[in-house]
Design a protein around this nucleic acid. Structure first.
Lengths: 176, 176
DNA sequence: GGGCACATGTAAGCTGTTACATGATTAA
DNA sequence: TTAATCATGTAACAGCTTACATGTGCCC
């Protein structure tokens, strides 16, 4: 019971885009929501079973033996809207990079600089990914209904990555 | 066993600033590291007991009956440096706000705008807090050894908050 | 026929929070 | 004297990941 409402939300949301198998739900979450959300098989399969028992999704014949394609029911669509409207829970922060920099005096300046350089490189790689996604989406031009909202989350990633790069540069300068 | 290395790191780090009780460790983590780290009593007390058994910290007489003040030993200081040098683990992302905006089509535009307005207000409040901390630290001017590193983490918070504000403004404009 | 992607599911175990039980000390 | 804060600790539980077990279908 009460297995994360947020997991239900992610699963129902994925199925609202198109019907798919549990495996595909996992892949969709990894690839599409990956930069701000994650779920493992250990969450997804039990969630699918429960959602089916509750009549929020229906299982259809899959493309191969033993596989299922899940589709949202009308109640499932209603439940999705309910969950979307609920206040979201935040996870307790656990930023290992900042924890290390906070004790930078014990860590040593050169190690701090190395951490910052790595963080900057990671953020640059992320920024490139987001920019590529945006370019691809804007080139396609399809799927207008979802696209604007997806671009909102891509934009969040871009802003966050740019902020990290600027912060790393400033901090590297400050450490001399 | 193997109770989070990162918890050990946070606890040893806190005690490296000054010797204190378990309760004070919790408060220090909440108040000082709060914007990027968290630990609960259920983590801290077992960690302290284990660290003491391992000879990394020593318990001294507290200010009142039954209370202890923990101090880093030489080995503890060494262990702290080891842990600081280890690569940090990242937590799987779980951003409830972006998850909701991603499915904004189902949620509805007005609800999306409300989420963005709230996110902006939160970020503004955070930014004000960080700015106040910075002002206070720069006014004091004391504790030079740690201060530069602490300001690095404050700066990270400022950049992140400003990025969120800019993103929210852009997104509100995009949603009309 | 071998490897890879697709596919389902569970059990063990780790990490971490919450709630509770307990009590000392201080300030109003 | 009563409320708040300081202080310690644990037990129950929630949430999630990982690894494993198992098998199908496709393509080279």
């Amino acid at each position: 019971m009460a297995r994360g409402k947020q997991t239900d939300l992610a699963v129902l949301g994925a199925l609202s885009v198109r019907p798919m198998s549990g495996y595909a739900v996992r892949e969709a979450i990894r690839e599409v929501l990956g930069h701000f959300w994650s779920e493992s098989y250990g969450q997804i399969y039990p969630a699918l079973a429960q959602l089916q028992r509750d009549g929020l999704i229906e299982a259809g014949e899959g493309s191969r033996a033993g596989s299922s394609v899940f589709t949202l029911t009308r109640q499932g669509r209603k439940r999705l809207k309910e969950l979307l409207a609920e206040p979201y829970q935040t996870v307790p922060p656990r930023n290992g990079l900042l924890l290390r920099l906070f004790f930078g005096h014990s860590l040593g300046d050169e190690a701090c600089r190395e951490l910052l350089r790595q963080a900057k490189a990671d953020a640059q790689a992320q920024l490139a990914t987001f920019t590529a996604i945006r370019a691809e989406m804007e080139a396609d031009g399809e799927d207008g209904a979802h696209q604007r909202y997806i671009l909102l989350t891509v934009s969040a990633g871009e802003h966050s990555a740019r902020a990290t790069i600027a912060w790393a540069d400033e901090s590297l300068a400050a450490l001399g």
